[in-house]
């Protein structure tokens, strides 16, 4: 049996940590960051901060943001960070 999504407990595909829904949300989050950086020149952290204030951000995207932040707090800061481009 495949593993459970770290956010919602749904089944994941293969070795993913997140279910297809939350993986898709993470994918969109990364893609949109490219646009945000181009439009506003914000950093990844500023970007997440701002999205948390917006009502129209999808429910699963918000859950992914919380998950990323939690993970960052519990993870060795020298380790690679999930989600950041460059």
């Amino acid at each position: 049996m495949s593993r459970e999504c770290s956010i919602c407990g749904r089944r994941c595909e293969d070795e993913d940590e997140l279910c297809p829904y939350h993986s898709g949300a993470l994918e969109n989050l990364k893609e949109a960051f490219v646009k945000w950086k181009h439009s506003l020149g914000v950093s990844w952290d500023e970007y997440l901060e701002r999205l948390e204030q917006l009502d129209t951000v999808g429910r699963w995207v918000k859950e992914v943001i919380v998950y990323l932040k939690d993970r960052e707090q519990n993870v060795d800061p020298t380790a690679a960070r999930v989600g950041t481009h460059d």
Binding site: Y21, G24, A25, N28, L29, E31, A32, K35, W36, S39, L40, L51, L54, T56, V57, G58, R59, W60, V61
Partner: peptide, 12 residues
């Protein structure tokens, strides 16, 4: 519903 839940707005 999935589109809405996975939506990330862009600024303009």
């Amino acid at each position: 519903d999935q589109e809405v839940n996975q939506f990330v707005p862009h600024p303009f």
